[in-house]
Amino acid sequence: MKFAIVVQGNPYASQSCHSALSFAQAVVDGGHEILRVFFYHDGVLVANHLTAPPQDELDIGAAWQAFAEEHDIELVACIASCLRRGILDETEAARYEKTSATIAPGFVISGLGQLVDATINADRVVTFGA
C-alpha cells in the first residue's frame, strides 16, 4: 500500500514530528511504500539545519534524514511555510538576499502541489497535526 505522510507540528514543541517518524518506520517495516513525506506549518522547522538540540535529546531532524537516506524517501517542505520560518535553500537565499541557506541535507523545498499530488496518488494519507 502507498502512504503519504503529512507533518504539521513543531518538531520540538509537539510530539507530531516524532510520532510521524515512528509511523513512517512502521510503514516501511510492514513492507509498504511511502510516496512522500510533506512538512507543512511548523513541521517545516524540522528541516532547519541550524538547530542544535542538547546531546542527551533526540535530534529529530537528523533522525528523519537518516531514515530518508536509508529508505530513499522524499522529504518535502512547503515553500510558503519555509520562507516564513527562515528555512531557505541556496536558490531562495539568493532570491531574498539572505546571508545563507538554512535547509538541512535530505530535505527539499517545494510547493503545495506536492501535497495535493501525494494526497491524490497515495492509497492512504496520514496527517500528524499541529
Partner: peptide, 11 residues
C-alpha cells in the same frame, strides 16, 4: 485555505 485552493486546481 492555501492548501484547499491549490487542491481545487487538481481535483
Amino acid at each position: 485555505l492555501d492548501a484547499l485552493l491549490m487542491g481545487s486546481a487538481f481535483t
